[in-house]
C-alpha cells in the first residue's frame, strides 16, 4: 500500500508540474505588467487607453508595458480587491467602492487617495440616461413615464452594480424634486422598481438583457453604455432619451499602494492614471462616450453630450458614505422597498 500511494502521488505531482509549466509565461520578457481592475462598461475604453499609454511609456522609458484587465460590477470588483485580487490600479464606477478598499485595508490603499489626482481622482464624468427602442413606442420622455403601468424598466441591482446605484439615486433625485419630499421620492422609486422585471448584477448584464434578449421598454443606464449599445447594435435600432434631471457620475481611479509596492510597479501605475488626464487620452475618453474633464476636448464634443440639470452626490446626497449607508446598506431604503415589492 505505501508504495502505491507514493507512486500515485509522484505521478500526479509530475503531471501537474508539467501542465503548469506549459501554461507559464505570464509576464512577457523584461516588460512590466499592470492589472487594471475596472467596472463593467469600460472594456472598450481601456483597450484604447492601454494601447496609447503603452506607446508613450515605450517611447519615454524604453520599457514594454502590457495590461491585464478584469471587468465586473463595481461593488463586486472592490470586494475582490479587498479579498486579495492584486490590482495595480482600481478604476471603479464610484469613489465609494475605492473608499471601501481603503476602509477595509488601510495598508493596501491610502484613505486620502482622492486628493492624489485632479478632479477628485475622477478623470471623466458621465450621467444616467434612458435607452428606448426605435420610434420610442411607449413614448418615454422623462422619469414620470417610467412608472406608468405596463412600462417595463431594465436596471441592474444597486447592491452589486455601481451604475445601478447611480440609476437609483438619479431616480430618487427626480422623485424628490417632483414630489417635494423624501417620502415622495421613496414612493416614486418604489413604483419604478415595481416595473423592473429583471435585476442584473451589473450594467453590462442589463444592457444585454435589454438589447440582446429584447426584454423591457426602457433601459436606465450610463450615457456611455447607451451610446455604445447604439453603436454596437447598429444605428436606428435604439434611441437615447435624455431626462429632465439626472446625476453627475464621477467614476474614480486610484493606484493600489500595497499591490504596486509588492509588484514594483508604483511609478508606471501612477503615470498610467496621470495619462488619463492628457488631451490625447481625454479625446479617447470622449470618443468612447464618457464626458471629458479637459475643457478644450469637451468643447469639441459638445454636440455629443447635451447639457442637462445634474444633481451631485456630494451636494444632494451628502457624499457616497452617507448615501451608501442610507440607501444601499443591509436593511437600507433599497432593501425596504424591495421587500415590499416582492410581497
Amino acid at each position: 500500500m505505501p508504495i502505491s500511494r507514493r507512486n500515485l502521488t509522484i505521478a500526479m505531482l509530475l503531471g501537474a508540474v508539467a501542465l503548469t509549466g506549459c501554461s507559464g509565461g505570464k509576464a512577457p520578457g523584461d516588460g512590466v505588467v499592470l492589472l487594471n481592475v475596472s467596472y463593467d462598461p469600460t472594456r472598450e475604453l481601456y483597450k484604447e487607453i492601454n494601447a496609447g499609454f503603452a506607446n508613450h511609456w515605450k517611447a519615454d522609458h524604453g520599457q514594454t508595458v502590457s495590461f491585464k484587465m478584469s471587468h465586473g460590477g463595481s461593488g463586486k470588483q472592490s470586494r475582490a480587491i479587498q479579498d486579495g485580487l492584486e490590482a495595480d490600479v482600481a478604476t471603479l464606477a464610484l469613489s465609494y467602492d475605492i473608499d471601501a478598499i481603503a476602509a477595509a485595508k488601510p495598508g493596501l490603499l491610502d484613505p486620502a487617495w482622492r486628493q492624489r489626482l485632479p478632479d477628485n481622482s475622477a478623470p471623466y464624468t458621465s450621467t444616467i440616461v434612458f435607452l428606448v427602442r426605435k420610434g420610442n413606442p411607449k413614448n418615454i420622455r422623462d422619469w414620470n413615464d417610467l412608472v406608468k403601468p405596463g412600462v417595463k424598466v431594465i436596471t441592474p441591482n444597486p447592491k452589486t452594480g455601481g451604475g445601478a446605484r447611480w440609476n437609483f439615486l438619479a431616480a430618487w433625485a427626480y422623485g424628490r424634486k417632483a414630489g417635494g419630499s423624501e417620502a415622495a421620492a421613496q414612493d416614486y422609486v418604489s413604483k419604478l422598481l415595481a416595473n423592473v422585471p429583471v435585476l442584473d448584477s451589473g450594467a453590462r448584464g442589463s444592457t444585454t438583457t435589454f438589447v440582446e434578449r429584447n426584454i423591457g421598454d426602457v433601459l436606465i443606464t450610463w450615457e456611455n453604455e447607451a451610446f455604445l449599445a447604439q453603436k454596437e447594435m447598429g444605428a436606428g435600432k435604439f434611441e437615447i432619451v435624455v431626462p429632465s434631471i439626472s446625476i453627475l457620475a464621477e467614476p474614480s481611479v486610484a493606484v493600489v499602494d500595497g499591490n504596486v509596492k509588492k509588484h514594483g510597479t508604483a511609478e508606471v501605475a501612477k503615470a498610467y492614471l496621470e495619462y488619463l488626464y492628457t488631451p490625447e487620452a481625454q479625446d479617447v475618453i470622449a470618443r468612447n462616450f464618457y464626458r471629458p474633464r479637459d475643457p478644450q476636448v469637451a468643447a469639441r464634443y459638445a454636440a455629443t453630450f447635451p447639457t442637462l440639470n445634474l444633481v451631485t452626490i456630494d451636494k444632494d446626497f451628502g457624499g457616497w458614505k452617507a448615501a451608501q449607508a442610507k440607501y444601499f446598506a443591509d436593511g437600507g431604503v433599497f432593501d425596504t422597498i424591495f421587500a415590499k415589492i416582492k410581497r
Binding site: K26, L35, V37, D40, R43, E44, K68, M69, S70, H71, G72, A80, L85, R204, G205, T208
Partner: peptide, 20 residues
Amino acid sequence: GHIRGETNTMPLHVEILYNE
C-alpha cells in the same frame, strides 16, 4: 477574479465575450 488571458476558463470567457 476574471483576469483576461489569465484566470478565465472557457465558461467564464464565454460570458465575457458575450458581454462585449
